[in-house]
Amino acid sequence: MFRFIGQHRHLRIGVLSQYQDELLPPGRRQAVAAALERCQVCRQELDQLAAMLSAMRRLPNGPAPRSFVFAAPPAPAPVARASLFLGAPRWVYAGAVSVAAVLLAAVVSADLTGSLVPQDHAPAMRSFQAAPAPGELAPQETAVPDAGQTQGLMKSAEPGSNGPEPVESPQPEPGIAVPLAPPAQGTPPSSEALETAPPGLTPAPAQETAMNAAAWADEYPSVAEGQATTPLMWRVLEGLLALAALAGLTALAFKMRRERR
């Protein structure tokens, strides 16, 4: 309650402790010395601390109950002291490897079965909206031929232009070929199909392309969107998991070899 006497606050054990050990910086030390001179309570505290420390210093350390000297050199250990990497018990590494392997298997199998791509088909839906339904495509396009479509016509007539390719390209097979093809085209096939479709002249191929694009987008929505972020993330995760499993196995192997010796 009455820890304060005027401006004085009794010195705490930590301060007295450091004063006793001469660990305080000179200015602080002087202030403490001055406080000790004025306050008897603090002096008494310091005296008690000093008494305690002197008694502790006189505690016996030994002698040891017996001599620990070696009659013969102890068997040498191959690697002297366990490093942090190999310091944990064996089951830690085994457990870590198992967990990493199980996770890796789960991610890879999910990846192979295609269940890693987002389950909502929002990108596919947008593709469907972008590509007009087969029924309304022809009338709309013939009714309003505009500059963009003329450009599209000219573009499709140009040799070497990549315009007509989506029209002619067959239904992409699932596998390696598909994810590679769209990025080379630059733009998703659905918009490409709209641009390049000559109004009125070839409605059937345009329809087919739109449908193909929609189907393709449905099957590979994120790739169709031109953003491969989700698969990339999973690839990185697979790589990390594989690395973790490998590192754990290596550590385990090292540890077992060391322990056998």
């Binding site: 450091q18 008494a51 305690m52």
Partner: peptide, 26 residues
């Protein structure tokens, strides 16, 4: 610091740290 504080409290509680005792250690 904390160890010394606890030790001092312990010795006070057991009656081992009294003014009569620290005088002989000075």
């Amino acid at each position: 610091s904390r160890g010394r504080g606890s030790m001092r409290d312990y010795l006070r509680a057991t009656g081992e740290l009294l003014p009569s005792q620290f005088r002989q250690d000075k």
